[in-house]
Design a protein around this nucleic acid. Sequence first.
DNA 1: ATCAGGAATTAGAATAATTCCAAATTTTCA
DNA 2: TGAAAATTTGGAATTATTCTAATTCCTGAT
Lengths: 143, 143
Amino acid sequence: MIVLAQTKNPNPEDFPSEINGLRMTRQRREVLATLLAERDHPTANDVFLRAQKRMPTISLATVYNCLEALVSHNLVKQVNFDRDSSRYCPNLSDHCHFQDESSGKIHDIGFKDGVNLTDLLDLPEGTQINHLEISLKGTFGKS
Amino acid sequence: MIVLAQTKNPNPEDFPSEINGLRMTRQRREVLATLLAERDHPTANDVFLRAQKRMPTISLATVYNCLEALVSHNLVKQVNFDRDSSRYCPNLSDHCHFQDESSGKIHDIGFKDGVNLTDLLDLPEGTQINHLEISLKGTFGKS
DNA sequence: ATCAGGAATTAGAATAATTCCAAATTTTCA
DNA sequence: TGAAAATTTGGAATTATTCTAATTCCTGAT
């Protein structure tokens, strides 16, 4: 698994031509670079507006297509809070999401060392987890 | 907190006139009874179709209204998987949801004794959690 | 380089879950 | 009983997302 640059404002040109089996087209690079540049969990439309600044011809449909391609190849995580529009997160480490109800901001929350969620769950023998999403809401402490 | 009957097919007439501060109208009783009768995590439309059998005049808008009232008074939980339509669950115990990818069925998953999710999370001091949702997908073991 | 075939992009239409609205009905309780 | 408030209702409106069909872009073989 290729580790993506964690630097801000990566140059889309610097991405390899294929990541995790996904051919990196110009638009996909742009969408990914947009997500990496500002890690504030934007919606598809937010990404569209930002990507348009550097690539004025990109369409919203393409942004949706690219996001779905990136998500399905595990380059980006899709973040859902209730029925709000989906948001996107390029943080690939194991984490969950906390939405502060006063600011609306979403924070990435890591797990403490050595803990494993599945140890806590009463799952029947032989269950295989393919996907897991944890979403929290409340008031976020100073940090 | 009033504990709702855990029996199947409760008679809507048997609910008290107010639960958790929510006035129980005829339609709200019917919607709640529908959820308690078959605990398979139906969508709003599923609930509508079932409730219509006993109350042919109920409208879909009312089902949405009732579900939202029940959810906001903590009588029912709203269950979300990605962008699928919301599903509703009258199980008020602390649990999360697992969707079996082969059958599509949703299972309630309890936590093992004595564990507390928040112990695992790297949350800043003073954070207050008001709402929490855990959704899993995969293949469910026999059981 | 050129060309054919496949993949990706695009604009706009279509979809579908949910919410909104305004009128009618029901309930509450003074 | 009657006025005010709350709820229900049907249908219209909203909106995020998906679909469609046409165009453009890539890629790899010649």
